[in-house]
Design a protein around this nucleic acid. Structure first.
Lengths: 125, 125
DNA sequence: TGCGGATATGCAGGCGGGTCGATGCTGCTG
DNA sequence: CAGCAGCATCGACCCGCCTGCATATCCGCA
């Protein structure tokens, strides 16, 4: 849950294909589980959704506390987890901290989950 | 974590597309989080992988305890969670209980996660 | 320089979850 | 019918996590 940010990257580089071909390795299972844990929370799913649908695709903490109905520290906590998981990126402009989705992060997770599809090593299409 | 099995079905019927267009609803977020919670565990990911790569695409508990290095009750516990989440189906033949993947369950989750696909909503950039 | 607003961090309480050992249940088999 | 093997359930322990309150930190502004 700490360097899972790198975990996502490490899983995309080599085509691990977790639920595809052969049994997944223990280390890979823990990495993927770490990223999924970051996703497996109602508040964090709503945060991702809110940020993604925000005007410029970005939002600061002060815009997110009210829709979620959670305290500011709690929202910051969730944003931290999502960022460390590699799903969000943070940019501080002045006093505000703007969060936006890491472009292909979620799609990468979806690909890792999607089973058969015949894992093409590079691009056979 | 109990009737999430139905939750998955309820989310596929209408195209909720959680992380797509507009902000996700609270109830939908909880349903999706429930299914993701079932996935967000190393042991359960390995179980899915082991079962999926088993000879006939099915496996009984006794085949799964050794590879996982977990006790039989713990394995049964995880299989129960996966089954209730709608990811596995159980068939009892004689003394053995055979588990297999629910055909499109994981792919459905992947689809729910996969973002807009350039849904012409508002964001024209 | 000092104040105020926006965030992040520390701390603590409460709850849910992963694990195991013991036990109950069911269906084979001798 | 008795014994046993495969599996599920129960109870308990412990750890991690979600949450809020209090506080610290950072930055802009007067």
């Amino acid at each position: 849950m700490y360097y899972v940010g790198t975990a996502l990257a490490e899983m995309t580089m080599p085509q691990i294909s977790p639920l595809a071909g052969e049994p997944i390795e223990r280390a890979d299972a823990e990495r993927l589980a770490g990223v999924l844990k970051a996703l497996a929370d109602p508040a964090r799913l709503r945060l991702l959704s809110l940020i993604q649908s925000a005007p410029e695709g970005e939002a600061c903490v002060c815009d997110l506390t009210a829709p979620l109905g959670l305290s500011q520290p709690t929202v910051s906590h969730h944003l931290r987890i999502l960022t460390e998981a590699g799903l969000l990126e943070r940019e501080k402009r002045g006093v505000w901290a703007y969060y936006r989705l890491v472009p292909t992060a979620i799609a990468t997770i979806a690909d890792l989950l999607t089973p058969p599809r015949k894992r093409a090593t590079k691009k056979a299409r």
